[in-house]
């Protein structure tokens, strides 16, 4: 992004120096830039430039998450299904098409993932987290995170989010939200079902492990249907499935 802005600066200077029609430039200088970057400025204090995240552990990174997932969240914040007053407020009067464009914008961004966090839990807890994420827990009916969120945990198009680049605090707050029913999604609400089988220690362990893994070379989500989901999910309906 920085590079691109630098390029614009140079372009601007060229126009000033060589343009005969300086009135056209003056008009540009007094108009808001016609870009998505300028339009999503209200998102940046919490989600960072290009949605790369900030140092605040409670605000998630948006960059590179599948557009369908981001759109589902924007709709849920707009309707109040997902509750966070600053988000509910900002999105109140936004049309669907615009929310789609905003989702597409953040989905296309690829700023580097932040360095993985140093886990603040014991090696044993971390190991438990890894087991849940990669193998699940058959005894308590918990599927492995990777079975839906992908072998490299970067999600699947169009609506299953990657889990990398998020802090343990955010991850455990969301899992807690699913467990207690304060965060819900369209039925069948698969994450609520999954999180309902986790206990508090499991949540802490899996959040710590997920936030500790280093970024893969390519953090893009897997393409749609590149692997089959283990069960039905309202957020990512399978159009081909028998009704």
């Amino acid at each position: 992004m920085k590079q691109r802005r630098g390029a614009y600066k140079i372009l601007g200077a060229v126009i000033v120096l060589f343009s005969v029609d300086s009135a056209a430039y003056a008009e540009n200088a007094t108009a808001a830039p016609d870009t998505m970057e300028a339009r999503v400025q209200p998102c940046t204090p919490c989600h960072g430039l290009a949605g790369k995240g900030t140092t605040d552990a409670y605000f998630p990174r948006l960059a590179g998450k599948p557009a369908g997932y981001l759109y589902n969240q924007l709709i849920a914040f707009r309707s109040g299904r997902r509750k966070y007053p600053p988000m509910n407020y900002l999105l109140q009067f936004m049309p669907d098409d615009y929310l789609r464009k905003i989702s597409a914008y953040f989905a296309e961004q690829r700023p580097p993932l932040p360095p993985a966090s140093n886990a603040e839990v014991s090696g044993k807890v971390l190991e438990r987290g890894k087991t849940i994420a990669t193998q699940g827990d058959l005894d308590s009916g918990v599927p492995a995170c990777v079975s839906c969120h992908g072998p490299s945990l970067t999600g699947q198009e169009p609506a299953i989010p990657g889990l990398l680049g998020l802090r343990a605090t955010y991850l455990s707050a969301q899992l807690g939200g699913w467990r207690y029913g304060t965060r819900t999604a369209i039925a069948p609400d698969c994450m609520q079902i999954v999180a309902g089988h986790l206990n508090e220690d499991d949540v802490r362990a899996v959040a710590a492990w997920l936030s500790s893994i280093p970024a893969p070379a390519d953090a893009s989500p897997a393409s749609a249907k590149s692997y089959a989901l283990p069960f039905a999910c309202g957020s990512q309906p399978d159009e081909d499935a028998p009704k």
Binding site: A32, R39, Q41, P42, P45, P86, M94, P95, D97
Partner: peptide, 24 residues
């Protein structure tokens, strides 16, 4: 404190907005 988007309308379907500064 809260920022805000102008409403999305037929003649301004992609409004710009003011960032919230409550946090910073």
């Amino acid at each position: 404190l809260n920022g805000g988007y102008a409403p999305g309308t037929k003649s301004n379907p992609m409004p710009y907005g003011m960032p919230p500064f409550a946090v910073s």
